[in-house]
């Protein structure tokens, strides 16, 4: 077996790389040998970055985003509207909304979505924390910004029921046509929602 001739540290790194999503055994070997042959500090930089990733990040105790400080920079930012809350599935969704620069309120990261198919229930997510936060807060509006997938819709439906008693206004992101899209190829559900949500053109 070719594997046996590899020194153990090399094999170990290959195995670790191979556990990452989208990386197969060949890519894992290629990355490992690149680091092995590359400049010495390149590998060390990567090693220290990986170490810091674990040591210096945590979940914000308020919004559960990934952060270095607790509470996170968004929760601490006094320039943001404290009465507007946007609920997202993942930290990457939060980043996407931040990139739009169209939102200036607070966030709540659920870390997943309810999925009957995969058996993911509300207790596997940061739902209880959200309910507590809304009940104890002064929010004027909760925006449910979960994905327009079956899982995201299920999550929004569930949260709507859970938060119904709080009397806070609950909204859902609009669904419609993407920039650069094409009506001809748009599915009927999206198209009918886009028609429902049409706005006066002035």
């Amino acid at each position: 077996m070719a594997h046996n001739v590899l020194p153990q540290p090399v094999q170990r790194l290959i195995d670790e790389f191979a556990r990452l999503p989208g990386i197969g055994p060949k890519s894992a070997s290629r990355l490992t040998f690149f680091l092995l042959r590359g400049a010495e500090n390149q590998a060390l930089e990567l090693a220290s970055a990986l170490q810091e990733l674990q040591a210096r990040t945590r979940f914000c105790s308020v919004c559960f985003n990934i952060t270095e400080m607790d509470p996170c920079v968004v929760c601490e930012d006094s320039g943001r509207d404290p009465n507007l809350l946007c609920v997202v599935e993942e930290p990457l969704d939060l980043l996407a909304i931040e990139r739009s620069r169209a939102f200036n309120g607070r966030y709540h990261v659920l870390h997943g979505a309810i999925s009957p198919v995969e058996g993911v229930g509300p207790e596997d997510l940061r739902v209880a924390e959200l309910v507590e936060r809304v009940q104890g807060g002064t929010f004027r509006e909760i925006i449910l910004a979960t994905n327009p997938t079956l899982e995201g819709e299920s999550t929004a439906l569930y949260l709507q029921r859970r938060l119904a008693g709080t009397k806070v206004k609950i909204t859902r992101l609009a669904r419609g046509l993407p920039i650069g899209g094409d009506l001809e190829y748009t599915d009927e559900i999206t198209l009918s929602r886009a028609l429902e949500g049409r706005q006066e053109f002035s």
Binding site: P116, S154, R161
Partner: peptide, 19 residues
């Protein structure tokens, strides 16, 4: 799409049965 089953997506219980 032939049938999108929007009604199943708008109801958590029906969505669970569809699953």
């Amino acid at each position: 799409m032939v049938a999108g089953y929007a009604a199943l997506r708008a109801d958590l219980v029906r969505a669970t049965y569809a699953s």
